Computed example of a mutant assay.
Amino acid sequence: MATTGLNRLRLARAGVGVAGAGRTGVRRSPNRGAFTLLVLIAPSVLLLVLINAYPLVYGAIQSIHRGTLITTGPLVGLENYTDVLADPRFWKATVFTLVFTLVGVFGSWVIGLTLALLLRTKVPGGPVFKVLLMTPWVVPIVVSSTAWNWLVAAPDSPLPTLTRWLGFGDALFLADPTLAAITVCVFKVWVSFPFMMLMTSAALASVDEGVYEAASIDGAGSRQKFTHITLPLISRSTYISWILMTIFCVNDFPTIYLLTGGGPVDSTTSLIVLAYRTVFQDFQTGPGVAIAFIMTIALVAVSTVLYRQIRKVEIA
């Protein structure tokens, strides 16, 4: 019996069927499995490539032609790019886009991190509080921008009325260029901090409490725990949230357009708003698409730098 069992085991390892001594088992080739997998995913991959590649290629063609929304127009090469880079409106929009992005990313991150740390403690009604804090992100941007317009746009709106009562005079939040830029940036932080709070909360939930207990035993204070434990351990999630929020801010058209329309006097015109105006209001498709491609190159560069930071992170 023991000899028979050993023989069956030997035959099975050799690929021979245990039910019949003279019948060999068929081994499936790894290449055959890979080919089957490739055949199964090929239609989906091809569809995704066509959906994404066609607009990209067509946009690249438009960016080197002097055309309109109807016709491609004559080939002008890189003239559209040089014209855009020589346009003062482009650089003014670039400066505002940079400020808008920096404030949106780091402002929402600081507030989101603070609230995530606060909600990690034993706060009465914490789950309800967390749901309420998600409201700015959940509410449609049209509703939020309408509410903020009611709050600051007219002289008899609540905030201008409050500033008058405090003796600061009539604060025209959406009519003054500086105040309009500040208002748009604050609005972006307000609608974005729930996303950062969610990302940070998920990262904090993965941190082992034993690390903090060991640090407390070694005499570490709250600041040392935060700088040497919390921030390093959530750094990967932080970099990912920065990448995503940078993309969200640079490509954020409705937040700006619904609140100020890019005004007054182009003080809140970002690159995406300028590209929209150039294509759909000035009917200059080539320069407008060129602006969009310059934005894409900048986003790829920033994302690459931050992604390299993620790969450098080492968690003990």
Results as ranks from 00 to 15, higher is better:
D252I: 05
A93I: 01
V26Y: 13
M134Y: 13
G263F: 00
M196R: 07
A292V: 00
A203T: 02
L119C: 03
F253A: 04
V84D: 07
L9E: 10
T269P: 01
W91T: 06
G73L: 08
G167M: 03
T238I: 01
L6M: 12
G59D: 06
R277G: 02
V250N: 01
A298F: 05
G104F: 00
A116N: 04
L113C: 02
I247L: 08
L40M: 15
F129P: 03
A202Q: 06
S145I: 00
A171P: 02
R10I: 06
L117F: 09
T255L: 06
S144G: 14
V105H: 07
R32G: 09
T183W: 01
V211K: 06
G33P: 05
A53S: 14
Q284Y: 03
M295A: 00
I41D: 09
L6F: 07
N80C: 08
F90M: 00
S222W: 12
G22Y: 10
T97C: 01
L50A: 15
W190T: 04
V305D: 07
Y307T: 12
G219F: 01
L151C: 07
V143A: 09
T36L: 15
T146H: 11
P136W: 11
W165V: 09
Y307H: 07
L75S: 13
R10E: 07
A215S: 11
I229P: 02
G104V: 00
F193A: 03
V300F: 12
I229Q: 04
N251A: 05
L166C: 02
P287H: 02
S222E: 05
R28P: 01
G104I: 00
S145C: 11
S44A: 13
V300C: 11
V189N: 09
G59I: 00
G126T: 06
T3Y: 12
R66D: 15
T285D: 10
V123G: 14
G33L: 10
I41R: 06
A275L: 03
Q281K: 15
T68D: 04
V49E: 10
F168T: 02
C185G: 04
A214E: 07
T71Q: 13
A290N: 02
T183E: 08
T36R: 15
M197Y: 07
H228A: 15
Q284W: 02
L50I: 04
A86R: 12
W165T: 07
L119H: 05
D218E: 12
T101F: 00
R66P: 02
T82K: 12
V300W: 06
L40R: 14
L38Y: 15
F100H: 09
L48W: 11
S270T: 09
R28S: 12
I111D: 04
S201W: 03
V313I: 02
A214T: 13
G262P: 03
S222H: 11
V211C: 03
K92A: 11
L258M: 11
V138K: 05
S235T: 08
V95T: 14
L37H: 11
F168M: 14
R13K: 13
K92Y: 06
A42S: 12
Q224G: 15
L46C: 15
D83Q: 10
N31W: 12
V142H: 14
T97E: 00
K188V: 00
T255V: 03
T72G: 09
G22N: 14
P264S: 09
Y276N: 05
Y276Q: 05
M134P: 02
P177Y: 08
D252P: 01
M1W: 08
L258A: 05
I64S: 04
